[in-house]
């Protein structure tokens, strides 16, 4: 099998695309854990076990961070379209 026919193989393309996506998602999980650990765990005392409160905080932290990114993205797109 030649390299160019390999590169055009739809199964391989799907596999590579899936791996790239997984890689991006994992990078984002690292980033979110880093931020949310500081907000919800490190600052709140005990490290002996995650409390229900810390768990909820971590879940909310992920959701609100993504809300925050969406809010900023929409606002920035608007700003660029208005040419400011």
């Amino acid at each position: 099998m030649s390299l160019s026919s390999l590169a055009n193989d739809p199964e391989l393309q799907k596999f590579v695309a899936a791996k790239e996506l997984e890689n991006q998602l994992t990078t984002q999980v690292h980033h979110l854990t880093n931020i949310c650990f500081d907000k919800c765990v490190e600052s709140s005392g005990s490290l002996s076990d995650l409390s229900a409160k810390q768990t909820t905080c971590l879940q909310n932290c992920v959701e609100r961070f993504l809300d925050c990114t969406m809010l900023i993205t929409n606002r920035t797109v608007q700003r660029i379209q208005q040419g400011r």
Binding site: C36, K39, C57, E63, R64, F65
Partner: peptide, 26 residues
């Protein structure tokens, strides 16, 4: 730019992440 903005403004504006973004957080 969007990544830096999110990091900076999330840290500055969200003290305790709740179940929604409050209007003052927004």
């Amino acid at each position: 730019l969007l990544q830096k903005l999110s990091d900076k403004c999330f840290k500055a504006c969200i003290q305790k992440p709740g179940s929604t973004l409050s209007s003052s957080e927004q």
